[in-house]
Computed example of a mutant assay.
Amino acid sequence: MLDDYRLFTTQIVILWAVLDPLSHLTLFMGATTSLAVADRRRAAWLSVVIAFGILTGFALLGPLLLRAMGVSLLSFQIAGGVIVFLFAINMVLGEAHQGEPHQNASPDAGENATSIAIYPLATPIIAGPGSMLTILLLMDNNRYSAFQQAITIAALAVIMVALLGIFLAGEYIGRVLGVHGANLIRRIMGLILAALAVNMILSALALWLRLPEI
């Protein structure tokens, strides 16, 4: 029982470090700048639920899928890094949203919130290559039993609940920052995200070529 508790707490710490809910708040605020308050909350709920489903599904089926397709983890990491890099470039160089978010939802506001919740919030921001690789390693069939894998899913659920709470609280933080502050944070976090994407790619290449760590 003690070992299971240690495994649970250890995996919570690992997943918190990888998913980093506090830094995701700035990305969430930047991606939902143009949404009304209700739509922003809808996007928060949908993004967390969808990301949890993606990570859980990939944890269970990812090894079989990659093995069946003959894709290595390093290849997956490089491909994911490229996608994250392209998204980060759009954050840095894309057009900033002007004006305050509309309080009255437009007819297509719900669809827009759903679209943003799926991309880029659920993936690649929350369920990105880094988190997918981490959950894949934590669910290793060769090292962990079914019960231990269930503990990993429970730890992931705890982190997702914390992430949702932070997203929902972002409305109040957004009032303090304002639209221009949110756009500024969007560009800064885009630059950081681009650096992380490059690091993911170079780290995978370093392992493949047996080069020293970057």
Score class of each variant (00 low, 15 high):
36 A>K: 12
36 A>H: 11
37 V>Y: 01
38 A>F: 06
39 D>Y: 04
40 R>F: 10
40 R>Q: 15
41 R>H: 06
41 R>C: 02
41 R>E: 04
41 R>S: 06
41 R>A: 05
42 R>K: 15
43 A>I: 01
44 A>L: 08
44 A>F: 05
44 A>V: 06
45 W>P: 02
46 L>S: 00
46 L>Y: 01
47 S>W: 06
47 S>M: 08
47 S>E: 05
48 V>E: 03
48 V>A: 07
49 V>L: 12
51 A>V: 01
52 F>M: 14
53 G>N: 07
55 L>F: 10
57 G>K: 11
58 F>N: 02
58 F>K: 03
58 F>V: 04
58 F>L: 04
58 F>I: 00
59 A>K: 02
59 A>N: 05
59 A>S: 13
59 A>W: 04
60 L>G: 00
60 L>D: 01
62 G>L: 02
62 G>H: 05
63 P>N: 12
63 P>Q: 11
63 P>H: 10
64 L>C: 04
64 L>T: 15
64 L>N: 10
65 L>F: 09
65 L>T: 05
67 R>W: 01
67 R>K: 10
68 A>T: 15
68 A>N: 11
68 A>S: 15
68 A>L: 14
70 G>K: 09
70 G>E: 13
71 V>N: 06
72 S>A: 05
72 S>V: 02
73 L>A: 06
73 L>H: 07
74 L>G: 13
74 L>K: 13
74 L>P: 07
75 S>R: 00
75 S>G: 14
75 S>T: 11
78 I>L: 03
79 A>G: 13
80 G>W: 03
81 G>T: 11
81 G>S: 14
82 V>C: 08
82 V>Y: 03
82 V>A: 07
84 V>H: 03
84 V>Y: 04
85 F>P: 12
86 L>V: 15
87 F>M: 15
88 A>N: 10
88 A>G: 13
88 A>Y: 07
89 I>F: 12
89 I>N: 09
90 N>E: 15
91 M>L: 15
91 M>E: 11
92 V>W: 09
93 L>P: 00
94 G>T: 12
95 E>G: 07
95 E>P: 05
95 E>A: 14
96 A>F: 06
96 A>W: 08
97 H>T: 13
97 H>Y: 10
97 H>P: 04
99 G>I: 09
100 E>L: 10
100 E>M: 09
100 E>A: 11
101 P>M: 06
103 Q>V: 13
104 N>S: 14
104 N>M: 13
105 A>I: 05
106 S>L: 14
106 S>R: 13
106 S>I: 01
107 P>L: 05
108 D>K: 14
109 A>W: 08
112 N>A: 15
113 A>C: 10
113 A>W: 07
114 T>C: 14
117 A>R: 06
118 I>A: 14
118 I>H: 09
120 P>V: 09
121 L>E: 04
122 A>W: 03
122 A>V: 06
123 T>D: 02
123 T>M: 13
125 I>F: 02
126 I>H: 01
127 A>F: 07
128 G>Y: 01
128 G>Q: 03
129 P>I: 02
130 G>N: 09
132 M>H: 03
132 M>K: 00
132 M>N: 02
133 L>D: 02
137 L>E: 08
137 L>T: 10
137 L>C: 01
138 L>P: 02
140 D>C: 03
140 D>F: 02
142 N>L: 11
143 R>N: 10
143 R>W: 05
